[in-house]
Design a protein around this nucleic acid. Sequence first.
RNA 1: GCCGGGAUAGCUCAGCGGUAGAGCAGGGGUUUUGUAAACCUCAGGUCGGGGGUUCGAAUCCCUUUCCCGGCUCCA
Length: 630
Amino acid sequence: MIRVKLGAKELKVKKGTNLSALFENRNIFAALVDGELVDLSAKLEKSCEVMPVDFSSELGKKIYWHSTAHIMAMAVKSLFPEAKLAIGPAIDQGFYYDFDWKFSTEDLPRIEARMKEIIKKDIPFERLIMKKEAVSEFFNRLNEIYKVELTRDIEDDEVSLYKNGEFVDLCRGPHVPSTGVIKAFKLLSIAGAYWRGDVNKPMLARIYGISFPTKKELDVYLKRLEQAKMRDHRKLGQDLELFSIFEPAGPGLIYWQPKGSIIKRLIEEYWIKEHINAGYQVVSTPHIARKELWQISGHYDYYKENMFTLNVEKEEYILKPMNCPGHILLYKSRLRSYKELPLRYAELGTVYRNELSGTLHGLLRVRGITIDDAHIFCRPDQIEDELCNVLDLAQKILGRYGFEKFQVDLSVRDPKNREKYLGSDEDWQRAEQGLISALKRVGLNYQRKEGEAVFYGPKIDIKLLDAIGREWQTTTIQFDFNLPARFQIEYVDKDGKSKLVTVIHRAIYGSIERFMGCLIEHYAGAFPLWLAPIQIEVMPITSKQNRYAEQVYKRCKRHRLRVKLNDRSDKINYRIREAEVNKVPYILVVGAREVQRKTVSVRKRGRGDMGEMKLKEFFSLIDAEKGGED
RNA sequence: GCCGGGAUAGCUCAGCGGUAGAGCAGGGGUUUUGUAAACCUCAGGUCGGGGGUUCGAAUCCCUUUCCCGGCUCCA
């Protein structure tokens, strides 16, 4: 007999008992045995602690989705026996499977139908352990070249496989006990994906899907996806007339409509104010420069595919893809003393990058990028304080928009591949140490990502999520071990000797375009009062109140509010609906009663009628809401 | 850039070999309205561009531009 701890209970069972015997609850489909994730078919060989796994946990979801991916692969193989299997993992939201095959969207319903049959048959998932060579041979015989390659890369001598009837897949597992466990699923899309994420390897077809233990959960999920589309910045950008992209003008280039320009200007003004307070100096640099500048910086050799070039009187000019060289020229315009450091140059600099056409995406990925850039030139002993200041500033600025939770990544070198990177070990260690202690000092949790650093230095990135949960990098703080040496950026130290400065690149919004995109989705177009393009709409109920309405309108204007007078002859209900659809924060309705009592009726967006008040009262109400911003 | 799917009025979409349609938005009128859609009327399109097949193409084929979902890349 062995002892099994199961939650608060302790059971005594026979050695070799099937794990599934412990659970009556049919929703449990896997378990953690002493922390190791296993199938329910696993046998208990020694005393241990068992934790049931169902769909409620992250682990459970992954197993459930992964099993669904296997079922999809089974369906695909039975419909298209020639399709070759690649990989099929669970992801954060669902699963995918890559096949070497050409699918069209019409295939999805057929695959779904076949999956339903497989689920109905309730075929068990059986775990097999085989010698690596035997597995390799097995897949070779089936002409599953990708599986052969995967098997070859496994370090263990023994390999696990999962078998459902005739279908066998290389897999670490675990899985749900049988196909019937999957109750509700949906295949969502087909997309291309390079084998092993490598551009030089074959392009495979990836099918994405999702599954849930109940139809209801699936429906809720699909409905949420549908609703998320309603806050897509591209849709809202058009509906609310914030920005446009024009085909004849070129892809990835943003034309800001008047309303979008108001918001853009406000977030820029706020940014400038905070940066001046934080000791930055605002500078401005041209959009083009001779190619020599980019040869010195190294961009001409290493960033060429991304740069737009111009011919000017037989000379080559480059449309700037980055602001750094410009800021460096400003720094180098005279000798710098250690006493001047840190020197912080900030610029809302628009750069142009020839991003791959297939990657362009609304405001979130464009070719004309306004970076809220700054370069900090400092001494090594100032690094940590400077980093803390940047992180504090980032939190303050992002917090102003209600972004309080975000993902923070610390990207460092790939330890196995040190030759790839510029700079000494000492540089990297000091920089990384500085980044870590700064993160700790300001109390930010972060994920360490090895191999994610750029070649010239380690960095911290902050990522925001869009409406459907995709991550977009905004804030970035990067060390640069490349440019100081290339440009000989120096300062005269206490001892009279010239020394290389440390350069930190940093952006907080990341780019104005991307940040605007994130903001639109974050607020679902309902901008807070201080950002709303139109803050107030004044509406007389009938034309008899037009004069009074105009007085109200003028007083609002004088109070420096962005106000619109809507005295069209449409019914008041119609105009109110229109303003609500346009997400105007406040409506002031004036009818005969308000004229008589010298008041306004206030209606707040999303909340409805707040009743009558004096205009003065209304002003103090919204002044408080604006939070002191003007 | 690569794979798959798209593009019809300002917007959302129907039409899918036989005379280009609807709703909303827009113009003109009527209505004078009390907190999310009053009524009438008018106008609006080389069906993304180019080429082809056909007696005839929005519809079928090729090509090109752009968009969407991914991959890769990145602010």
